[in-house]
Amino acid sequence: MSDVDPRPRPQYGEYATPEEQRARIARPDATDALEAGVSPEAVASDHAVPAAPAATSAARPTRTADRIITVILLGYGLLTVLVSAPQMIDVGTFAQTLFQTLGVDAQLAEPEGVRAWGIAGASVLVIGWLLTAWVSWRSLRAGRLTWWIPLVGGIVCNLVSGMLMVIPIMNDSAAWEALQRTVSG
């Protein structure tokens, strides 16, 4: 009989003895060399593999523009909240100003009875801005792209508070009909 092994020649050390495995483990792996930027041939000739370079602060993006845009949007939102919230509380005056701007000859039947809607609208603006600022701050601290957070927060809060301001006008049938007549024709 011949001494020929019928098994195929191992490619990855499947048939290595424990001594051969220990010897191979003691050498640096070719993948470590590739990650460090050294050719596998250098590892085969037992050259030392340099350590992988440490990440420097210059390698990380600073996102300066993102921070500036985020702060500007938050500042604009704060200014909007500070100006709009007190005006929203008085829905009667808000509705009268809206009617005058649109050229509608109408007014709310009970301007004081709809004050709760204005308080709700102003609260949405204030709480929405605080929540948006908190989420933006957390995102900035984590180093993530943040400019979109105050933009989306502002759009959502203004839409919701605007809807809360229109509901009392829609519920007042005389004012709503006058508004519809003016807008439609």
Rank of each mutant, 00 (worst) to 15 (best):
4 V>F: 11
5 D>F: 02
7 R>Y: 09
8 P>S: 10
10 P>A: 13
14 E>Y: 08
16 A>T: 00
16 A>R: 01
17 T>L: 10
17 T>R: 03
17 T>K: 03
17 T>D: 04
18 P>S: 15
18 P>H: 15
20 E>C: 05
20 E>D: 06
22 R>V: 00
23 A>I: 00
25 I>G: 05
26 A>R: 03
29 D>E: 15
32 D>M: 11
33 A>L: 06
34 L>C: 05
35 E>I: 02
35 E>L: 09
37 G>H: 08
38 V>H: 01
39 S>E: 13
42 A>P: 01
45 S>L: 10
46 D>V: 02
48 A>G: 05
49 V>M: 06
50 P>F: 13
50 P>C: 00
53 P>F: 09
53 P>L: 06
55 A>D: 10
55 A>S: 14
55 A>I: 08
56 T>S: 15
56 T>L: 14
58 A>I: 06
60 R>S: 10
61 P>Y: 00
69 I>K: 12
71 V>G: 04
72 I>L: 15
74 L>V: 08
75 G>P: 05
75 G>D: 02
78 L>C: 07
80 T>V: 04
83 V>A: 15
83 V>D: 13
84 S>G: 00
85 A>M: 03
88 M>Q: 10
91 V>L: 12
92 G>L: 07
92 G>H: 14
93 T>E: 15
94 F>N: 08
95 A>L: 04
95 A>Y: 00
97 T>I: 15
98 L>R: 12
99 F>R: 07
100 Q>I: 02
101 T>I: 11
101 T>N: 10
102 L>G: 03
102 L>F: 14
107 Q>A: 12
107 Q>E: 15
108 L>F: 05
108 L>C: 00
108 L>R: 03
109 A>I: 09
111 P>W: 12
116 A>T: 06
117 W>Y: 15
119 I>T: 09
121 G>M: 05
122 A>S: 11
124 V>K: 01
125 L>R: 03
127 I>G: 05
127 I>C: 04
128 G>T: 04
129 W>H: 07
129 W>K: 02
130 L>P: 00
132 T>A: 07
132 T>H: 02
132 T>F: 09
136 S>E: 10
138 R>K: 14
139 S>G: 13
140 L>D: 03
140 L>I: 05
143 G>Q: 06
145 L>S: 14
146 T>P: 06
151 L>E: 07
152 V>T: 03
153 G>R: 05
153 G>W: 13
156 V>H: 03
163 M>I: 08
164 L>G: 00
167 I>D: 00
167 I>L: 14
170 M>N: 04
171 N>D: 12
171 N>T: 01
173 S>H: 15
176 W>M: 03
177 E>M: 08
178 A>W: 08
180 Q>G: 07
182 T>P: 06
185 G>T: 14
